[in-house]
């Protein structure tokens, strides 16, 4: 088997004296959708923030595409092909939809390529095209999530990490968002997904890691874990 695209080993992260991650290891292969699921406070967001450089680990390594990310400045990580769709979307509310998308392509300089990507994003999210002159803060929750995803796509990433993309959305929109995540895989992108909606996450994922208070409780193929009694009870509410 070839090297995984993302390999995280023995990651330990602290907030002051409080240990948020107690040495977790996981990997994501190229072309996979991998989910980290778990309750509030399990360390899912902390993991993603450490991967994309917003937090620094005390111990452990994060190797992406053969390079150690723990020493790389966060603003350089996106140009390595790793895009982050953060929790709560964090779109730039006071800027237009179009400017938000352009900021997604901040590390790119080829104007023609950017326009090309922009057209593709508008094709996938026609509502963003209709509203491109509007301030992003005036969009609905679902549209804001689409903008956050479109913004990530404009950096032309090889891998996208997504933090709670379904948070605060209606069931119909949640399904729509997960359909979009599937299209990422079809486009050859690799996805690392963090979700509280474990059931939905498992339906789109290849593999799943279950986090509990800073450690990995269990891992496996999504198809197997769906039938695991423990997982069913604790995370799927069955």
């Amino acid at each position: 088997m070839s090297e995984p695209l993302l390999q995280v080993k023995d990651l330990e992260v602290y907030y002051g004296v409080i240990q948020a991650l107690k040495g977790i290891s996981f990997h994501v292969n190229k072309g996979e959708i991998v989910s980290l699921i778990g309750a509030n406070g399990a360390g899912k967001t902390t993991t993603l923030h450490t991967v994309t450089g917003l937090l620094r680990p005390k111990h452990g390594s994060i190797v992406y595409d053969g390079k150690d990310l723990t020493k790389v400045h966060p603003h350089k990580i996106v140009s390595m092909g790793l895009a982050h769709v953060p929790e709560g979307r964090r779109i730039f509310q006071n800027l237009s939809v179009y400017d938000n998308l352009l900021l997604g392509a901040y590390t790119k300089n080829d104007k023609a390529k950017i326009n090309d990507q922009m057209e593709q994003v508008f094709e996938q999210f026609p509502r963003l095209k209709e509203r491109r002159r509007q301030l992003a803060g005036t969009l609905s929750g679902g549209e804001q999530q689409m903008l956050a995803m479109g913004r990530a796509l404009l950096s032309d990433p090889e891998m996208i990490v997504m933090d709670e993309p379904s948070m605060g959305l209606s069931p119909l929109l949640v399904s729509e968002i997960f359909e979009i995540i599937k299209t990422f895989r079809e486009a050859g992108k690799t996805v690392l997904l963090v979700e509280q909606n474990a059931k939905k996450a498992m339906t789109v994922s290849d593999r799943v890691y279950v986090l509990e208070t800073g450690s990995i409780l269990t891992e496996g193929n999504a198809a197997d874990l769906v039938n695991d009694e423990r997982i069913k009870k604790a995370y799927l509410g069955e």
């Binding site: 966060p74 603003h75 964090r90 730039f92 800027l95 900021l103 901040y106 950096s155």
Partner: peptide
């Protein structure tokens, strides 16, 4: 200028865009 507006609104999100704060 756009990068300046982005940093002023959300420094963390700006970094995720690849902006050197």
């Amino acid at each position: 200028g756009r990068a300046m507006l982005a940093v002023s609104e959300d420094r963390g999100a700006a970094q995720l865009m690849g902006i050197n704060v």
